[in-house]
Design a protein around this nucleic acid. Structure first.
Ligand code: FES
Ligand code: FES
Lengths: 170, 170
DNA sequence: TTCAACAAGACCAATTTGGTCCTATTCACC
DNA sequence: GGTGAATAGGACCAAATTGGTCTTGTTGAA
């Protein structure tokens, strides 16, 4: 009964991408570090988003991902469903449900009510809306770095901080 | 992102138990067959319900389970939480959340909204209310038995139909 | 033409789910 | 009161899902 980590990362990645100028292409690695998410996992997740027509991928050197639509045209619901498949709060609510006793069962009615509410909430919020309220993970890291006595879990994520366009010596 | 089968079976078992006269004791096997659910799995699930104080167990010959409260005092929410633990639509909403970037994150706000709605729906429906709308699985079986050309999946569940009080020859 | 950057996806370990089956306890009956 | 059948309790297990990593193949730039 949980939204998977993949969906969470997908949203964070899109949030990062939405902060860029519209239509700009960005590589997965930068997005991942910006939100403190494992790079290659985010790469795999973005493949799903690409297949769902939410982002567009460009291969080869200088490649990366870019948004197909504007952030306010992307809903949280479709991001989650792109990653996890159609939302079904219970097996009887799946599209190809094989539940044996649909007729007199009172449970599916209740589950379906809850599911509708969830889908309604996720359906009416856009990526753009969340971008407004969201501060990237990396900023939080910087702000708390000095006051924090080396938190072991977040310490590892701090170092790599590279940008794709500028290339330093050696 | 699904309510587990255990919760579903727990509800079905309680629904069956609610159809009995108040306070009566019934064995798991009867409840299980009545709702078409694997017997020993339901047994394990009812242990959780027992620990949560929703049902009371009696061991030994003539034993079984009985409701502690009346069906209208049992909410669907507490049944689900008794079986699966506290509902958390996402890891950051768990009681001992270790999410690193709570502060500026916009996602948890949205997830928490959805979670509240779900808990509200499950919190305001009682077992009694569902019992009214629910017809047991076994009735559906009997009604459709003749018109159905031996459905392999449900065929096995039809036979055992024993009652605990009456004992036949041999 | 070569090389490095990149997406794509095969692969894998750990956890969770969905059960089964054996064991310990209790009661009913003799 | 002893004995055994009936019952809950809980250890155990297989399969699916999750949460990733690593290799491979493609592409553009130098
Ligand atoms: S039909 Fe499956 S839970 Fe209602
Ligand atoms: S803090 Fe974890 S999703 Fe918001």
């Amino acid at each position: 009964m949980q939204i998977t980590r993949a969906s969470e990362y997908a949203m964070l990645g899109l949030l990062a991408l939405s902060r860029r100028p519209a239509g700009s292409i960005e590589m997965v690695d930068a997005l991942a570090h910006e939100e403190g998410v494992p790079t290659s996992f985010l790469g795999k997740i973005f493949q799903s988003l690409s297949r769902a027509g939410i982002v567009k991928s460009a291969r080869g050197s200088g490649g990366g991902f870019s948004l197909v639509r504007t952030p306010d045209e992307i809903t949280v619901l479709e991001v989650i469903e792109a990653v996890e498949g159609p939302i079904a709060l219970q097996r009887c609510l799946e599209t190809d449900s094989d539940c044996t006793h649909r007729e007199g069962c009172a449970l599916c009615g209740l589950f379906s009510e809850a599911q509708d509410r969830v889908k309604e909430i996720f359906g009416r919020t856009s990526v753009a809306e969340l971008t407004r309220r969201h501060t990237p993970f990396v900023e939080y890291e910087e702000r708390t770095a000095r006051s924090r006595p080396k938190h072991p879990k977040t310490a590892a994520a701090t170092k790599p901080k590279r940008s794709r366009t500028l290339k330093l010596s050696s």
